[in-house]
Design a protein around this nucleic acid. Structure first.
Lengths: 158, 158
DNA sequence: GATACATATACATTTTTCTGTATATTTATA
DNA sequence: TATAAATATACAGAAAAATGTATATGTATC
């Protein structure tokens, strides 16, 4: 696993510093760094890292997507959350110190109709449901999010 | 893995809502929820979750440690970081949107002598080394941090 | 300090994840 | 839209992680 971790970090570095327009290019560059993988593995790495294709004047370029982080974050977000509680009108999440904004951001991006907004402090996230009736629904949403299975399929870098 | 994830989330919930003073209690409560594990596995779960013992008037109590998050976060950090660059005097980390404060916080807590401070915005962390001479050292530190292997030993919940 | 109680860990096995091969599917180009 | 090029995925084997058993180590109590 540490092998995979190192490889994926190297891939990020290369994406940031070189103009990569297809899998083969990346595989060659990795090869020069003594990292030998097949196109299939790279395809999976791109998916996990949330790599996307952009279309520039100079042609197709693969880059990291700052917003869709792949599913790695989904797997780990549960670890950031310490508790989920609520009263009649809102849901309060306690997180590890310093991680509330990241969690709030992630929840925002779920774009759930039942959530009209979130506020993240240092270790607390406040979630405002769109109605008192939906408080329970929102709690379930959050808990599902925490449990989200790490299995991840490729489906076009989505 | 999803099994482990669910179990660990349940463990967190129980720690938040019950007074757990030893492994056996937790194992029994999990059993009622149809989660059957041995003491050895619980010991490992506690370690991974960063559970600590506190000493209250009512006796020993196991709780989540908001500051020492176990090593799960170490694994997460690498995925949050998109790039690490520097100039003569400082190091700049780009992160996934909304995750810079979490990364900055984590770096702060490494308590490295070579780092005199960090500032986290939304997707950018600025790291101030204690001297221009140490810029490279700090970059290495960050890269090592990203690669940190997820293997984790128990050593008294440290 | 000896004994009992509680927690951590070495080792072997089971389960899950990772990877390559082969191939299907998708995307680009004529 | 036919062909070629590029990427994704099913499947099987390899590698790594998770778990239980047995036991060692650590902690509390007398």
């Amino acid at each position: 696993m540490s092998v995979k971790l190192k490889r994926q970090n190297k891939i990020k570095e290369i994406l940031n510093n070189k103009f990569i327009s297809n899998h083969e290019d990346m595989i060659k560059i990795l090869g020069k760094e003594d990292i030998h993988i097949t196109q299939a593995t790279l395809s999976r790495d791109f998916a996990e890292l949330g790599v996307i294709r952009t279309f520039t004047d100079a042609g197709t370029r693969y880059v990291l997507n700052q917003y869709e982080s792949g599913k790695q974050i989904a797997r780990l977000i549960g670890f950031e959350i310490l508790s989920v509680e609520h009263n009649e009108s809102m849901v309060v999440i306690r997180t590890l110190a310093g991680r509330a904004q990241g969690v709030a951001h992630y929840i925002d991006r779920l774009n759930k109709q039942e959530i009209i907004g979130t506020v993240g402090g240092d270790d607390t996230v406040l979630i405002i449901p769109n109605s008192q009736e939906n408080v329970d629904k929102v709690v379930s949403l959050i808990k599902d999010m925490m449990m989200m299975p790490p299995h991840f399929k490729n489906k076009h870098y989505q």
